[in-house]
């Protein structure tokens, strides 16, 4: 208990101290990592924990961005409320998509979610009147009780708490009976059903969670980039999010953070090689899925085990 309190206190101190040490742009990057991690957290839940491959995450992110923007432009709904409403609706869409898993799994599921992403992207592009078509649309500025949050420095105080709370929630979900049921389904659907788990309901719930997380992440990413470009919500982007999850490690929420940090920060170090960025990311995904399918996090835990093993031997 005291360890947890101490950990919480350290996190809070870092959270309030960071803005004093980091420049505006670095705070923006921290926000970008956090929002991307939230999107990828959705993949961790549905694919990493529940074992259902999903290429729908880019569509959820797009819906999560367009939803509040359209609600604000057409009905004057405040952006924060728009993001929440949209996230709940997209969660429901995710649940419906999860119902597909009754009949399909494996590569058919990958294909169906891929088609879903393609349809949603085409809908953005062809509904010119509502979404601005292929040109895209402006994301409205976040305003809460008269305060505007437009820069990395101010959004920091919104994005990080939201992402932090949701990560905590998912951490608890994974260690709850529901999360254990997800893991049981991943290992064997037949065995899970034999133990009395409602497989379809749980798979749908996992998709709903990934939709909800993806939509909130999409809303936050929209606030950060201030513009919604429909080309950012296609199958290519769905594979990108999958790559972040694989490189970080799909089995734990920590992997989502590690992967997002890698994918946001690597372009900074490779600024001279912008043209090769896509290739670098693709190669990272390929190398990791072949050599380290459980990502960077598993590398760290293996190292810890080696170090821990030595200590134990030393003690004995």
């Amino acid at each position: 208990m005291t360890v947890r309190l101490l950990f919480g206190a350290v996190v809070l101190v870092i959270f309030f101290a960071a803005p004093h040490f980091l420049a505006e742009f670095q705070l923006f990057q921290v926000c970008l990592i956090a929002a991307t991690a939230l999107v990828v957290l959705g993949i961790v839940v549905v694919t990493g924990i529940a074992g259902q491959i999903s290429l729908a995450q880019a569509a959820f992110v797009g819906l999560g961005g367009y939803g509040p923007a359209i609600l604000a432009a057409r009905y004057g709904v405040p952006v924060w409320a728009g993001i929440m409403i949209t996230a709940v609706v997209v969660g429901a869409v995710g649940y419906a998509l999860g119902q597909l898993t009754l009949r399909v799994s494996g590569h058919y599921l990958a294909l169906a979610t891929m088609a879903f992403t393609a349809i949603v992207q085409l809908a953005f592009i062809h509904s010119d009147a509502v979404t601005g078509g292929a040109v895209g649309m402006q994301m409205p500025t976040l305003e809460i009780s008269g305060k505007t949050f437009a820069s990395g420095g101010t959004l920091y105080y919104v994005v990080l708490p939201v992402v932090g709370v949701l990560f905590l929630a998912v951490h608890n979900l994974i260690h709850s009976p529901v999360g254990r049921a997800f893991a049981a389904i991943r290992q064997s659907e037949t065995a899970a059903a034999a133990m009395g788990i409602d497989v379809l309901a749980h798979k749908s719930a996992a998709f709903a969670a990934s939709g909800f997380l993806g939509a909130i992440g999409g809303g936050l990413l929209g606030l950060l980039s201030t513009y919604l470009d429909p080309s950012q919500f296609g199958i290519t982007q769905a594979v990108y999010y999958l790559a972040v999850a694989v490189v970080g490690g799909m089995q734990s929420p920590l992997g989502a953070i590690v992967g997002s940090a890698v994918f946001v920060l690597v372009p900074e170090f490779l600024q001279a090689f912008q043209t090769y960025l896509g290739l670098v990311f693709a190669l990272l995904l390929l190398v990791f899925i072949v050599l380290r399918p459980n990502g960077l996090v598993s590398l760290a835990s293996d190292l810890l085990r080696i170090v821990g093993g030595k200590q134990q031997r030393g003690a004995a």
């Binding site: 491959i53 494996g106 590569h107 999958l242 790559a243 896509g278 693709a282 390929l286 899925i289």
Partner: peptide
């Protein structure tokens, strides 16, 4: 599945 997606990418 992911590996074949990665190859294409």
């Amino acid at each position: 599945i992911i590996a074949s997606l990665a190859l294409g990418t």
